[in-house]
Design a protein around this nucleic acid. Structure first.
Length: 423
RNA sequence: GGCGCCGUGGCCGAGAGGUUAGGCAGAGGCCUGCAAAGCCUCGUACAGCGGUUCGAGUCCGCUCGGCGCCUCCA
């Protein structure tokens, strides 16, 4: 399998694993319900793992929960711990609804604080970091490779607001001293405080995957500074860290109406409520993960139509796919996980078995299941069929309209009819 | 100022030097009591301008347009 690696700026062969393929993907900061765009890296990582398992690999996926962060303090002054707990619960609830299962490990920043303190101490000890008035900063100029991932040149990094505690304005925080209003803190060798964002991820990744692992994922917006800093911290201590950096493109909210809408309207929960998991997953499938994808009524409607087209395949007779059909599907995914190309191959199939297997990689095998009609609907359909057999077509059509009003479609077939749930 | 991404037919989106993408929408037809679904037929598109080449959406340069990041955005 080939993947695009941000670090080397090109496609690389997925390193053959001595053991499981180890994947870390940056999870959400829990300060509100996650946004429909926040779900992209989650979905991508789950799909990738499912695909690796499907192709015979062993894989271990870690997605963290960032429950210590400025955003949480800002969103819930004085009640940040409660907000983090609530939002963690929402996150699990909303991503569970995607029906893709859970990552193998979901560490939290809070439970990893002691490990973070230990790593910071080691960085200080080796001269890569310094304490300053209760804060600890990473000395960016001590790590010569700094900027390599993001292509930033240190001398071109924009000037920050002057911070007298920093030796260099470009240094980043590993530990922050507790400030008034911040209602959670931990004791440390530098006093009360809490870890910086970047160190959390470095530690959580390495705690569960070791000093070196195959893939590190996350949104493209995390390349700099977040991932750049993760690399710097980890490699400064001699840990090889991630071999492949996999970044997903950002979801765009294209519709004018979406622009006007509030944050809540584009939460994952709202998207699931409005479109359902099958349409939403199909929507994510239509775009290549590295490219921006537009979230709008039009693009979601198109996704719904695609999903319906797959359902129709299962309503018809199964026809064996030509030899090599699966290989073409596999080739699409093995080539930088091109789900749009894989989708195109799938649309050519009328082979129930094969299509179901392909859909199951993406958690969409439910498209193969027809919903059973409730008794009152079945009764309407029976009466309609009787009217048809009596050649009372006016009554038959009236009953069909009734069925449609109730959300069901009667499709006449040779020797009978089929009831289909309208979407 | 710096780093980087993107621009394909009405829409979404593959392809990456020479041969069909696929889906949605649309038109016509077959089938049907009428439909729906399905099947058949129909679109010659690659932002613009130069260049390389026998040949360029596909490589190079420039221009235009859209977008992301530049120290706590997935």
């Amino acid at each position: 399998m080939r993947l695009y690696d941000t670090f080397s700026r090109g496609l690389v062969e997925l390193p053959p694993p001595p053991g499981p393929i180890r994947i870390y993907s940056c999870g959400p900061t829990v300060y509100q319900r996650i946004h429909v765009g926040n779900a992209v890296p989650f979905v991508l990582a789950m799909w990738l793992k499912r695909w690796l398992v499907e192709t015979g690999y062993d894989a271990k996926l870690v997605i963290n929960v960032t429950d210590i962060n400025d955003k949480i303090y800002d969103a819930a002054p004085g009640a940040s711990a409660q907000l983090a707990a609530d939002a963690s619960h929402w996150y699990l609830e909303d991503t569970d609804r995607l029906g893709l299962g859970r990552p193998d490990v979901e560490p939290t920043a809070v439970e990893t604080v002691p490990d973070q303190v230990a790593m910071i101490e080691e960085l200080i000890e080796k001269g890569f970091a310094y304490e300053s008035d209760g804060d600890v900063y990473f000395r960016v100029t001590r790590y010569p490779e700094y900027g390599r991932l993001s292509g930033q040149r240190l001398d071109q990094v924009e000037e920050q607001e002057p911070n007298p505690r920093k030796e260099d304005p470009r240094d980043f925080a590993l530990w922050k001293a507790n400030k008034p209003g911040e209602d959670t803190w931990w004791e440390s060798p530098w006093g009360r405080g809490r870890p910086g964002w970047h160190i959390e991820c470095s530690v959580m990744a390495q705690k569960h995957l070791g000093p070196e692992f195959e893939i590190h994922g996350g949104g493209l917006d995390l390349v700099f500074p977040h991932h750049e800093n993760e690399i710097a911290q980890s490699r400064a201590l001699g840990h090889p860290f991630a071999k492949v950096w996999m970044h997903n493109g950002l979801l765009r909210l294209g519709d004018e109406e979406m622009h006007k809408s509030t944050g809540n309207d584009v939460s994952l929960k709202a998207a699931l409520d409005a479109w359902g998991r099958e349409t939403l997953l199909t929507f994510y499938l239509t775009g290549h993960y590295r490219k921006p994808l537009e979230y709008s009524d039009a693009t979601l409607e198109a996704a719904a139509a695609r999903a319906e087209r797959f359902r129709d395949v299962f309503r018809g007779p199964s026809q064996p796919a030509p030899a090599g059909a699966w290989a073409r599907f596999a080739a699409a995914l093995d080539d930088d996980f091109s789900t749009p190309a894989a989708l195109a191959v799938m649309h050519e199939w009328r082979d129930h078995e094969l299509l179901r297997r392909a859909l199951s990689v993406f958690g969409l095998e439910s498209l193969a299941e027809e919903e059973a009609a409730p008794p009152e609907i079945a009764d309407l359909a029976t009466r309609r069929q009787a009217a048809r057999e009596a050649r009372d077509f006016d009554e038959a059509d009236r009953l069909r309209d009734e069925l449609e009003a109730a959300g069901w479609e009667a499709r006449d077939e040779p020797g009978g009819y089929r009831l289909v749930r309208l979407r």
